[in-house]
Amino acid sequence: MFSFCSDPSSLEGLAWLSCYLTTGKHIEMYWALGTVLLLLAITAPTALAFGFGGAMAARSRFLPVSLFGRAYIAIVRGVPDIAFFMFFVIALDQLFEVIRHKLKCPDWPQDIWQGNDFVVCPEAKLPLGTAPQWVHETYGFFLAVLTFAIVFGAFAANVLFGAMRAVPRAQVETAEAYGMTQRQAFWRIIVPQMWVYALPGLSNLWMVLIKATPLLFLLGIEDIVYWARELGGAKTARFSDYPHPDWRMWYFLALLIFYLLFTRVSEIVLDRIMRRLTRGQATVAGEAQRKAAA
């Protein structure tokens, strides 16, 4: 990084530290930080979409759809997220490849399952065998987002399902009295009003989501915890220009501060959103806001 870093063994103090913290390996860790933030930014809306779909399905009047929605919510909520992370990525990956295999190579002579091996035709591989490394990484990232979204979507579905039911019945009855159809009442009355009921649950979920990111390494993403362990572990002079004893504690301390700060910022932002959403709502807090303003 810096010109004076060419001979690390001669450095001391701050100069050593500045070189140490800018090694290629550390840069990878800073990138991993970005990856985690990006993953959170993409997962949150995706999980919300899954949750919305799940809640709609669970509310459906058509029994099989409703059963499906309820089963999705109940099963995923009932199982520790780690258990899913341990095999879901491989399962999803294989599912996609089987679908592509059926579409692209209908006349493939061999079985997909050969003993323990899972072999699809080369055209169906995801990503293709010729693809560069960044495509593989992006695909891995995509699978991780999808897994997170499916798991947290079930929790979101549960929250939204409750929130839809929390909208006062009188509101819907009034809408029906105005001649709205069920669909209209749902989209125009329930959906706009449910957020204020859903937000406490959703903010809680966001906090849980932030704290689930240390499990990303199970999904094949080299996240900050992976790098903290890797960089913090004791290094001998033979394999590194910057030998040091076990420093994992300091790396984990940095992670701890990062997570606490992130939580604090999230709390402040969510608090603002809550206040914004409460405005003009027929709830105690909304009433209090109105009185304070008057």
Partner: peptide
């Protein structure tokens, strides 16, 4: 409450063991 709710259990275990 803030420290224990704001950090991953993963990291809490690490520090506790240490």
């Amino acid at each position: 409450i803030f420290v224990f709710r704001g950090s991953p259990l993963f990291i809490q275990f690490f520090f506790a063991y240490f």
